[in-house]
Computed example of a mutant assay.
Amino acid sequence: MTETRRTNRFALLFFIYFMMTSVALAMVPAIRELSDSAYMLLAQLICFLPPMAFYFFSTRKDVKQTLRLKPLGWKNVLIIISFAVSIQPVMSLLSYLMSLFFPNPVEQSIEGIQQSGLIVSMLSVAVIPALLEEVFSRGILLSGYQFLGRWKAAFASALLFGLLHMNPQQLPYAFVVGFIFCFLVARTDSLFAGILPHMIINGTTVVSIFTEGAGTGPVELEQSVILVTLLLMALLSIPWLALLLYIFLKINPPKAELQLMDETGNLYAERFITPSIVVIFLLYAAFGLFPYLST
């Protein structure tokens, strides 16, 4: 079995376990009585930790090497922090465009997050998801897809990261930032290049929720006004994002890509689409997309 097929099978098992465990937890009365943020915190730990531990136990892979647990360096830290802040107008635009067609789960959980308190909410929405989702997506998956090639590996990891959200409203911007995180991690050879911006982006959302809650309430604006405002903010952020990317590329030159030859002497390449991936697509269509289309 090739490394890509093995990674695809793990991804499928992870999706199945994730979905079954999420449903099972929702049926436990004691857990359902927890605050929204406390519930999310517990659910994430139970849904992510066991399958990831099983992965390393069954494959015997080196954890440090697979997850690229290397320091970033202060220059990369500053650039990535600035990048995480500056890319949020683009993310907000993508999120708003999709919210015109599908409900935004973040907006639906605002009240529950506010009632849970800032510290618990920051842990459940920003810190823990950044750690667990990055270990799964930019750690295990990105490493497992190395024989696809640099760009295909980033595409595969980002796509599964987007599908894992099981929500069409979140899929586009999750895929976009997931792909960017893959690029940051690959260039720095450090998983912290994904964890840091992930944590900042989610943490900004939490802060904005509590900031709005402390005010007089959101101002109702027409969709056209909101769309134009978000579009202008996104366009204004692009030159600064381009400059940050240029500086990042200068600091982090490309590393030699792993290349293998097959028995005929041609460049060896694996295929991403296998039966396991097809089943993941079907699961997403049935449980992540169809419920929104049928309402």
Rank of each mutant, 00 (worst) to 15 (best):
S92W: 12
L93M: 10
S92M: 14
R60K: 11
A130H: 01
P103Y: 08
Q88C: 11
G117I: 05
R68N: 05
N76M: 03
F101D: 04
P71M: 10
V77L: 08
M122G: 08
Y55D: 01
G117R: 06
I80E: 06
T59L: 03
S137R: 00
M98P: 00
P129I: 08
F56R: 01
I128C: 06
S82H: 06
L67E: 02
S92C: 10
P89S: 08
V85H: 12
S99E: 12
M122H: 01
M98G: 04
G112Q: 08
W74H: 12
F136V: 04
R68V: 01
Q115I: 12
F54R: 06
R60N: 06
F101L: 09
L97H: 04
L132K: 00
P103I: 08
E107A: 15
I79W: 12
Y96N: 13
I81F: 05
L142I: 03
I87V: 15
E133R: 00
V85N: 11
L78F: 13
F83N: 00
F102S: 02
W74R: 15
L118F: 15
Q65S: 14
L100C: 14
S109L: 15
A84I: 02
R138N: 03
N104C: 10
F54N: 02
S99Y: 09
D62R: 10
V77S: 02
K75Q: 14
K70F: 10
I81A: 07
R138M: 02
L142C: 09
T66W: 01
K75L: 15
I128K: 05
I110F: 12
R138P: 01
F83V: 10
G139S: 04
R60F: 00
N104E: 12
K75V: 14
V135F: 00
L97N: 08
S124V: 11
A84R: 05
M98F: 09
D62T: 07
